[in-house]
Design a binder for these strands. Sequence first.
DNA 1: GTAATAGAAGCG
DNA 2: GCTTCTATTACA
Length: 666
Amino acid sequence: MLKSVMAFFDLVFPLKLKPLTYEMEGAKTLLPGTVVEAELKKTIRRALILDENLPGENVSGEGRGQGAGKFPTKTIKSVLTDGPAISAPLLGLLKWMAGYYMVPEGLALKVMFGGELFEKGKPRKAKRPERGGTRPAGAEAPAALLTASDAVAALTRIRQAQDYRAFLLHAPNGPFEGELALEASRDQKGVIVICPERSRMMEYERRMKPVFGGRLCVLHGGLTSAKRRFAYEKILAGETDVVLGTRVAVFAPLKKVSLIILTGEEDPNYKNRQDVRYGTREVAVMRAWLEKARVLLSSICPSAESYLNALRGKYEYLRFPGEKPAVRVLLDSKKKSGSGLPAGGDIMDRAITAAFAGALEKGRNALLVANRPGHSVPLCEDCGHFERCPSCGTALVLHKTLKAKKAGASASLLCHHCGFVKGAQETCGVCGGHGLKPLGAGIERLKEEAERLLTGTMGIKIVDRGKKTEKPEDAPEALLPLLYLGTKRVSKIAGEAGAARPKIAALIYPESAFFRPGFRSRERVFAEINHLADRLSADGKIIIQTKTPELFRAMKELDYEGFMKEELEERKALGYPPFSKIAQITIEAPTKPMPAQAPPPVKTRSGVEIPDAQVLGPIEKTDEKGKKFFLLLVKAPTARALKAAVGAALRTIAPGAKVTVDIDPA
DNA sequence: GTAATAGAAGCG
DNA sequence: GCTTCTATTACA
């Protein structure tokens, strides 16, 4: 009898699942990217055709080959799209994501489109994408920014480049960065503009909407799934070809992309922390490569990775130097005078309070930044005792504004590691002494001091929290000088004050940031100071109060090249990125210390040894809930070698443990 | 000893 | 994501 013609296809479901082979009756061939329905464990689900699984061909992995072999294949129930729903470059990106980040293709698919690309349900006509003008409109576009001839030349190069081309824009300031992004995309078709966070994206939206109108589409993780689906439909239909968004926008299913702009390219927000731990910058560059498109990475303080790529000629470097505010590093005066505190035991250096008072008296705004939440650690002067967290052992921090539910306590002691809370006492818990001395400079304590030293004599409004209440009721107070006080969050708000940006900023003991884990901590601190500088007025000034001025020596002039030279030399010496590739393996094993202490020499599949790959660890850590886990760090000279080395390391881990792999960890 | 339940594996 | 299989615990 005539046997019916069968074709076999590898399908990807948007689940944590590798591709599976299904069959389809008839000679009709389905193109990769086509959406179909097929049965998985008795339920019919939507999936994407990844490849045709041709007889005799062995597609990625074990025992598959032609589907008609070892196991019975199920059949594709129906075909939902007439041809590919997503472009070939995007499909390529999916495969690259799965390979590079070592996750199943299904998980990559899920992360890229969140499942919405596959859900059924009729898209309702959008209500009104326009939102009412809720904003007082801060910084306005200094329109003449880009008239300088070198800026015009840069724009021309970006616009006219053909095929794949990467640019690194080292912008002098945020407004310039935004202006160049807008101008570069102005007469382009198929543009993706990505911002590191939603609030920045909304600023860009305000600027781009008048230019692109209905061509502009917004895409970010906070969209409801209906809105997200609606956005996808507009993009797929070609109704909009300019996509603005946060990191998920890098996957926008445009038919054709010609320009990708990644603003604030060094921002840590670009690292995805769940499921597929991708880096948006790496994905953006890879997508541009696959799309044969141009990619513009921009920042006021580019990452060491991108800067090295620029130095090596992989990216075209567009450098626009700008005036930077003066940075002054103050040695902590108390260090010299021992424990003999000045009157009142002030934390802030006199030079800072004087400079702040000067600026505020002139009606200028000021910004005080510290990394520590809470007030202080109460230390008993009599017996030296301080309270520790029962599970973490770390010092508990006094929060005066946080009321503990414990009877009688007007303040509480909080563990910043695990969140443990208890009521605070007025006296020492061990000796009953009354001499509790505050140790450390938390925001709450700084606020007390600022109120005492600065607001006492003049009318000043302290702004110390997020913009939950952004009402125009500030109007009468708008004349008062503002003292912004808080962590980075507050400095962001201060930077959005348009013409009234702070004239002076002080950082109180920022050195703790140097000791955050990870090899990038220095670079982060430097970038943060640069961003702080960008938030100040043109005649701004930053004062750093520190006990370790040596650590800030390289940051003092905000000399980017000088800093990067040192930083890159150190990274090279230690074998860290961008001179190597690294991966971090997290192992959640209940009690087992670790199966293999010394991993075997790293080899590729074919048995070739990789000379410079190494596996460090395991080290034991405890998470916020007090749960133990273990970390392995894998270093290798190239991405390829890294993959092999990670594979080798994984084989040494006993089964039963929950393992996650993070390629290029933050 | 079996039943109830939780957690991991596998899905073509 | 949902089913199914397996390991573990509860319980008469």
